[in-house]
Amino acid sequence: MKRRLLVMNGQKILQNFNDNEWRTTGLIKKAEEGIKPGIYNIYLAKMAVTNNKGYEGLLLFIDKQEGLVYQQVNKEFISHKLELFNSPPPIGKNVSIQYDAQEKLNLIKIDTASNKRMHKI
């Protein structure tokens, strides 16, 4: 199913593509600080490679039904399994998600002003 996240006027809206049109699925909430207004086509997300791989970018959305966390890495969207996180990740924050050889996830918050890694979350 195609899904997109719309962010505008401080609100975020989740939409599904059904019957050749985008329909709101009921999620209309305040957008987290750090997410810029725009259309995020999260249906284009690729599943994260979980063997010695890292991803650095903005966390956009947690889909509890699908059990996925969506992250924007440069111009791409990456989805991570929610079950791999110890606690819900901080939406609207730039983070580095690193997977080790045992497919264990490490989450590090990044200070966007200096682009330095702050601390492990």
Rank of each mutant, 00 (worst) to 15 (best):
M1N: 09
M1Y: 09
K2L: 07
R3N: 06
R4D: 11
R4L: 05
L5R: 10
L6P: 05
V7I: 14
M8I: 12
N9T: 01
K12H: 12
K12C: 05
L14C: 10
F17A: 05
F17I: 12
E21F: 05
W22F: 14
W22R: 07
W22H: 09
R23S: 12
T25V: 10
T25Q: 11
T25K: 04
L27M: 15
L27F: 06
L27D: 11
I28E: 08
K29M: 04
A31M: 09
E32L: 14
E33N: 14
G34W: 02
I35F: 05
I35C: 06
K36D: 09
K36P: 08
K36F: 02
K36S: 11
P37E: 04
P37G: 00
G38C: 15
Y40S: 00
Y40G: 00
Y43N: 02
Y43L: 00
Y43C: 04
L44Q: 11
A45S: 10
K46R: 01
M47P: 10
M47C: 08
A48R: 13
V49H: 13
V49F: 12
N51H: 11
N52S: 10
G57H: 01
L58K: 05
L59N: 01
L59G: 00
L60W: 06
I62G: 13
I62H: 10
K64Q: 10
K64A: 05
G67H: 07
G67E: 04
L68D: 02
L68K: 11
V69Y: 01
Y70S: 05
Q71V: 06
Q72F: 00
K75Q: 13
K75P: 11
E76L: 01
I78K: 01
S79Y: 05
H80Q: 13
K81G: 06
E83N: 08
L84M: 03
F85R: 04
F85T: 05
F85Y: 15
N86P: 13
S87W: 03
S87Y: 09
S87P: 11
S87K: 15
P88H: 14
P89E: 09
P90R: 08
K93M: 07
N94Q: 07
N94C: 03
S96E: 14
S96G: 15
S96W: 07
I97E: 07
Q98Y: 03
Q98M: 07
Q98H: 03
Q98S: 09
Y99T: 04
Y99I: 03
Y99M: 05
D100Y: 06
D100S: 14
Q102L: 04
Q102N: 06
Q102S: 05
E103M: 01
E103L: 00
K104R: 08
L105R: 04
L105K: 03
N106K: 15
L107I: 04
I108A: 07
K109S: 10
T112V: 14
T112F: 13
A113H: 13
S114P: 01
R117A: 15
R117K: 15
M118R: 12
H119P: 01
K120G: 03
K120P: 00
I121G: 04
